[in-house]
Design a protein around this nucleic acid. Structure first.
Lengths: 364, 364
DNA sequence: CGCACAAATTTGATCGATCAAATTTGCGGC
DNA sequence: GCCGCAAATTTGATCGATCAAATTTGTGCG
């Protein structure tokens, strides 16, 4: 256990505390020879400066906070794992740590911000789901606390609205658009959309991509018939898929993997082996259903799905925060790297899969 | 923003720093009248003591650390969400915070412990998957760092081994045992077990419960035939289920929801509507497949599954850590509550579900 | 009334780092 | 050899709390 302190190391080495401190924080201020000698001693002793002492003096905790939502649907929330891991990793390699907290509501979340800022001195926050007229971003913005949001800002009407705080989001419309294009090249033309019955802006965005791609391909006439809404559950997906099938859809793009899973189950049952394999219109072995979020379930079942680049989003968010925090102190000094885009819309990627060939044998 | 400090509040109030400090940390030392006056002032000013200053003096960070594993399988890792949320919540209400970190290996994890102890002064760690001959528990134990494990200790041979560190685990065997009993009362007798082909102690434990229940029910003769191992994937589950079915199994208990899902898909395809509804032996509407972990997928598909009480486990783990840390200082003083069990094996619960009736109509 | 002794409160030192200012060292030039 | 000036290093103060010891206040009793 390294019971070392600046003072102890300093006296052992025959230099002053401040010199060691400078070696760590402002190496250029120290003569190369001394610097190297000190660095060697630091390494040998395994000395690590105490974050608490540092924080007390500098008023920086090197700590970001993030609210953990209760596991809601779960099947979709599954990408949270990936996001959280990527965040932690990125924060870690930037020298920051990540502190979690819980809250029952947005108001409670704001109360937690206040407390965590006072008590733990967090340097910034990561918000995960932006809502129309978000109270949290207002509060943080007014207070001047650094933060970055995963999710673009929506106005009260649920439309994408300009805002000057940093955010990263995934372009859902681009995702569904690409999904439609994939299905088109497979030979489908009556491609349905299976969305949420809640009027969420995210859902509207995903639907828009489908509409855009269908219209562009000249299939814009039946959009009102081929766009269906259901509860975001497997059961909802099943019933929605039945409706779409009855209206002649040969393929469908879904707002979530839950819906897609329900659709898949339903259609597999209705036309065993046929529809799912890309029939009737597509080449054999291609899925005619595309989900959203590329959850582990989709991967397990061989369901095509729109994958969000959450790792990239996480890294960018950390980049935004660290840039802002570093900038405050050392902006013009070192010139730094190019600042990360304050608003970034990432393109998702359609993962095309071949449904599991369950008919074949092969026991272990 | 509450720019308040002990000293500032003290002078405003006309008392000394230490009195305020005592009101917060040792109220009994302060005369009731003063105490109330100070408490009122604290509330009015919204004063909150700085964690950094406190930590510097007391050497306590009120912070626990936990390693975040990379999202591996995912479909099973899904219970991590619940666990993490429960941990955070429990820690929060005990006045602690939770810090996450990443590591590529157990050795790296130990290195992170060392660093986090030195730098951030974490008070304890939560470990999530115990392994045979765990290097991490050794290291922490020798160093005397408080920690608690979710997962019982295994010896090098993969058997449950005594150890004196605090841990909580879920009794997997009891879970599969109960699952078997449920299937027995449904009328099944040829109940198969579909496990992992890796020799993991957790898997062995789950299999044991099945063996025990089968033997107790007088069906112990065909265990070697009805116990099958496969890769822990949906495909593995499908092939394993095919094998079991060919050997006359009418029901099966699986080591994971992935396997169960594969089995379900396979059997639904092989005997549409029949097997899954509890046929041939069980009453209609009952599932003849039971998974493990009760992931959201199982819930979504109406798959019965053995549910781990992860929330309870998380709360107990926090209880263990806080007790140990409080105990160090105030053990005999206040008498405290009964100490939480240092080793605890929680019983899981079988969630019985009726498979989704996909055949019925009902579009939105 | 005063004294002993406990209860209540205050004061000075400290945790381990950084900041700001003071001091010492190094070096070229006259 | 001495001066000035920049580079390198050191010193004292400080962040905001708690600890330990000192001091003041309060109470019972001879």
């Amino acid at each position: 256990m390294s019971r070392h302190t600046l003072a102890s190391l300093a006296s052992e080495l025959g230099v002053s505390r401040q010199t060691i401190s400078n070696v760590l924080n402002a190496p250029h201020k120290v003569k190369p020879a001394t610097r190297e000698r000190v660095q060697a001693a630091i390494a040998a002793a395994g000395y690590r400066p105490s974050a608490a002492a540092r924080q007390l003096r500098t008023q920086r905790s090197m700590n970001f906070g993030m609210r953990l939502f209760p596991a809601t649907d779960g099947i979709n929330g599954a990408i949270l794992d990936r996001f959280l891991h990527a965040l932690t990793e990125a924060a870690q390699s930037a020298g920051y740590r990540l502190t979690l907290f819980c809250a029952d509501s947005d108001e409670e979340e704001v109360r937690q911000y206040e407390q965590l800022l006072d008590v733990a001195g967090l340097d910034g926050f990561i918000l995960t789901s932006s809502r129309p007229d978000d109270v949290r971003t207002h509060w943080l913005g007014e207070r001047g606390t650094p933060f970055a949001v995963f999710g673009r800002p929506w106005d009260a009407a649920g439309h994408s609205a300009p805002a000057d705080h940093p955010w990263v989001d995934v372009d859902g419309a681009a995702g569904t658009e690409e999904a439609v294009r994939m299905l088109l090249t497979q030979g489908h033309s009556r491609i349905g959309f299976l969305g949420w019955h809640t009027g969420s802006p995210v859902g509207a965005d995903r639907r828009q991509g489908w509409e855009r791609a269908m219209t562009a391909a000249g299939h814009g006439q039946d959009l009102h018939v081929l766009g269906v809404e259901a509860e975001d559950t497997v059961a909802g997906g099943a019933s929605g898929a039945a409706l779409l099938a009855s209206r002649g859809a040969t393929a469908m793009v879904c707002s979530s993997d839950s819906l897609a899973l329900g659709a898949m189950e339903k259609l597999r049952e209705a036309q065993p082996g046929a529809f799912l394999s890309g029939q009737p219109a597509g080449p054999a072995g291609r899925a005619a259903i595309v989900g959203f979020d590329d959850t582990p379930v989709a991967a397990a079942l061989g369901l095509s799905s729109v994958a969000q680049p959450v790792e990239e989003a996480a890294r960018h968010i950390i980049g935004l925060l660290t840039h802002e925090l570093a900038g405050k102190a050392a902006a013009a000094r070192s010139g730094a790297g190019a600042p990360p885009a304050r608003q970034l819309l990432l393109a998702p990627r359609v993962v095309e899969r071949i449904p599991l060939p369950l008919a074949s044998p092969g026991p272990s």
